[in-house]
Amino acid sequence: MRTQEKTEQPDDAAAGGEAPVTVIIADDDPMICQTMALILQDYSRGRIRVLDTCADGVQAVAAAERDHPDVMLMDIDMPAMDGIEATDRVRHVSPGTHVLILTSLSPQRTVERAVEMGAEGFVSKTDAPQTIIERILAVRDGEPQFNQAAQRQLLDDMASTRLNAREDEARGMLDSLPERERETVILAAQGMSNQEIAERMFISERTVKAHLSSASERLSMNRVQLARLVERAGR
C-alpha cells in the first residue's frame, strides 16, 4: 500500500469553505495509480485529496475501513480480491464511501454485478481529467455516474437477467409435472401427434390425451400455451 504525500493543495476549495473530497485509488497497475493520483491532485484545484493507493482488493477494504474516504476508485481485475467483491466489503466497512468502478472496459455482466455490490458508477481510465473529477465530485453528492456505454451494458444485462429468469420459471413449471406428463407435453410441443406420442412412449392415445389434459389443468394452460412453455424452458 502506497500512501500519497500530503502535498499542499491550491486553496480554491478552502476559500469556498468546503473540505476537499477524499479519495482512495485501488488498481494493481502502479502506473495507473500514480497517473490517476496526479490527475486528481493537479487538476482538481484543491477540490480532491488522494489519501492512498492500493494494489489489490484486500488492501482497498483495509484502507477504506481505516480512512473512510468519500470516494473510492476501484479497478475490477485485481489479485487477492477482485474489485466487485471488494466493493461489497467496502460498503460494509465504510457505508459512507461511494465506489466508482475504475475500468477501461465493461465486460458483460460487469455493470450489473458492480451495481448489485453497491457501486454507484464507472470512471474510464481514458476519460479526460475534468470528466473524472466531475464524476468524483458528483458521486460524492449522491449522483450515480454511468456513461452511455455503462448504461447500455446495464440495460443489456438486465434484459439478459429477465430472459434467464423467465427460462428458470418455465423449467420450474415443467419440472413440477409428473415425469410421464412432462414427457408427453415436451413431445407434443415438438409437433408430434397423439398417435406418434403414443407409439414413442408405448402407451395408448387415450393415455396421451389424459396426460395432456392433466398437465393443462395443473398449469392452467391450453396445448398452445404448453408448447410455448416448453420453448421458453429450452426443452
Rank of each mutant, 00 (worst) to 15 (best):
V99I: 13
I101N: 10
L102C: 05
S104F: 07
S104A: 12
L105V: 13
S106Q: 07
Q108E: 14
R113E: 15
A114S: 15
V115K: 05
E116Q: 03
E116R: 05
E120A: 02
G121R: 01
G121E: 10
F122Q: 00
T126P: 01
D127V: 02
A128S: 02
A128E: 11
Q130R: 04
Q130W: 04
T131W: 02
I132E: 09
A138C: 06
A138V: 04
G142W: 01
E143M: 02
E143T: 13
P144G: 07
P144W: 06
Q145W: 09
N147Q: 04
Q148P: 11
A150I: 13
A150R: 01
Q151H: 03
Q153D: 11
L155E: 15
L155G: 11
M158C: 10
A159T: 13
N164W: 09
E167K: 14
E169Q: 12
S176K: 13
P178I: 09
R182F: 01
R182S: 06
E183I: 04
T184I: 13
V185S: 04
L187N: 07
A188K: 07
A189G: 15
A189F: 00
Q190F: 12
M192E: 14
S193W: 03
N194R: 07
E196W: 01
E196I: 01
R200G: 00
R200F: 06
M201Q: 14
I203Y: 03
I203V: 14
I203P: 05
S204E: 08
E205T: 06
R206K: 12
T207V: 09
K209D: 11
A210L: 12
A210K: 08
L212T: 00
